[in-house]
Design a protein around this nucleic acid. Structure first.
Lengths: 334, 334
DNA sequence: CTTTTCGAAGAAAACCTTTTCAAAGCGATT
DNA sequence: AATCGCTTTGAAAAGGTTTTCTTCGAAAAG
């Protein structure tokens, strides 16, 4: 049986109030008793019961993180950042993987509610009214990560997707490419899909390359889809010399496809990815890509959530993080 | 204010006991009242307070998972499996990433203890006496995953590392290779290091290829180390025609090194990996590798822990999972 | 028609801690 | 000597649930 505060009190021959005080405001109890209590705590290996504590404080000192797909390398960086921030701020972290399943996500919110997490970071997914209302009804504070909501006023941490996509495409154009394709996210069920598309278009228009507008194929997160999308793209537009991919995993899919078709990357076709996953630097060829500061974003999300939880509001609603183009081996001057 | 069982009772005009019964043994309360209670619960969006519950049950219905490095792709499969099993079994899951830091790991155990997790899955790391004793003192049940302990009697789920390594090397030998190197885990701080080494040696001896005994270089988990280890190996033994790597990430490092040296894989050198990460199928060339059933191992670990938590013991102490050689593109007949 | 039995539901205790309130002790002030 | 104020301590309430113990009433048995 786990020792309770009562056992400590008995051993130290004081009341339980005194034991509690020793732990929470030690200066208020006289030296001699304090020493006895501390000794008893040590001897019994006493650890306060967090359930009893939670009952009183109405706080669990736990944050929840909701991610769509833990097998997506993108989230591992986020998790590390958030976990480190949680340690600093004194929280535990509960990570849940929704597998992009609506019901599962809803169930996790219930679980979080029941476990009384102090707040939730909601990563990447679209904030459907259903989710929003549930969260509000449960009165759980939350912040969005790598996503935002136009419909509701929710704090978020993200990069400028439009600008980042623009930078990537501009880079390809500056390299001399005139026939540029794109592998994008489907616009429904995706927040970063539209702005990245916009960035692509803006870069094209600025350079008078509107004839590429239609060279877009869509994929849904996974390598295999991107491989297939690349097949479609190059079947329809075999003269394409550069492809902008909205995810590194897509870039790998495209490069694999080109490899199978014996098209050289970057020799014949340049490919730019997005995210700068750890794998981007391990792939052959190493990927040119738009880097997102995943670790920092995880940290910021946790800090922002902490701010929201403790003060009830946040100073800046939408926080933009810096992206950066990283040039490696998958792109080349035309 | 969150609604409590009291509010539900008032609205349904019954006692709190009845409300409690509706939730825990509905058949014991009469239809009419049950309906009223259910309605009130629905209307108030009532959710029982898990602190109060925990206080009574002395259970948190939460399991902890301790992993050394979340950026290692190996663990994402494990996490998915374990999380799915947890859902089935009615647990929440708390994942902690130790970054292979002893103090951090110890701190997480404290956190788990304080949060009263019902049990812990301890993945991949060496079970140092320090950890073991702490866990025992805290009376937290735990199982080992992808590791085991010779020193202590702890339930575990793992594959047969010796056999798996043997299979991989045997495969290379059967392919006609006579000059085979290995990139292994350092033996200190690694559980699977020694048996995989043994498997390598056994396969060599069986084929009368003992002259390869020394062709081993070590790396510590990361791609870059493996790249460097490959450099050492091929500098010392330039005639090597096949490399057995104890991790897919090592295989990628080796292949990257060979690529930089303009040595073709599998044209001139065959490379076999270990784990069958998702990335093994995305890499160029796709990796021949030993598959571990990561998802199933995560599941089994959770189930086993559940068994341990609920019954106090497990039926089979050391559970062996099946591995399997997957032949892809990084290996070829010599 | 009375007694027994059984089902349903309420009251209250228990789980463990923090915190408020009250009391006791004691030196200092009037 | 009585009062005041201060420090230190203990008693008790509060937090929300489950569960045991009782009670009440109705149905079954005699």
């Amino acid at each position: 049986m786990k020792p309770t505060i009562r056992d400590v009190a008995k051993m130290a021959e004081v009341s339980i109030s005194t034991v509690s005080r020793v732990m929470n405001s030690p200066e208020s109890v006289i030296e001699s008793k304090r020493a006895r209590v501390l000794e008893a705590i040590e001897k019994l290996q006493y650890q306060p019961n967090s359930f009893a504590r939670g009952l009183i404080y109405k706080k669990s000192f736990t944050l929840g993180l909701l991610i769509p797909d833990i097998e997506n390398f993108y989230y591992t960086g986020i998790i590390r950042g958030m976990q480190d921030a949680c340690i600093k701020l004194g929280y535990s972290l509960m990570i849940c993987n929704t597998d992009r399943d609506k019901n599962r996500l809803l169930a996790y919110i219930d679980a979080f509610h029941e476990k009384q997490v102090d707040g939730i970071v909601f990563a990447s997914d679209v904030m459907f009214p259903e989710y929003y209302e549930k969260l509000v009804r449960c009165k759980i504070p939350f912040v969005l990560l790598s996503t935002h909501s136009d419909e509701f006023e929710v704090p978020c941490v993200e990069i400028d997707d439009e600008e980042a996509a623009y930078d990537a495409v501009k880079f390809l154009i500056d390299l001399g490419h005139r026939d540029i394709g794109m592998i994008g996210f489907n616009h429904e069920n995706s927040i970063s899909g539209p702005p990245r598309y916009q960035g692509f278009i803006r870069a094209l228009e600025e350079a008078g390359l509107e004839h590429n507008r239609e060279k877009i194929r869509y994929a849904t997160h996974r390598f295999e889809h991107a491989y297939h999308a690349a097949h479609e793209l190059f079947t329809d537009y075999p003269d394409t010399t550069a492809v902008f991919c909205v995810a590194d995993e897509f870039a790998m899919g495209v490069i694999s496809y080109l490899k199978d078709r014996n098209i050289l990357v970057p020799g014949q076709v340049s490919v730019v990815g997005f995210d700068n996953l750890r794998i981007a630097n391990m792939f052959i060829p190493k990927l040119t890509t738009i880097a997102q500061p995943m670790y920092e974003m995880g940290c910021r999300a946790a800090e922002k959530l902490h701010e929201l939880v403790t003060t009830g509001s946040v100073e800046v609603l939408r926080e933009k993080m810096e992206h950066k183009l990283i040039v490696r081996e998958s792109s080349r001057q035309r």
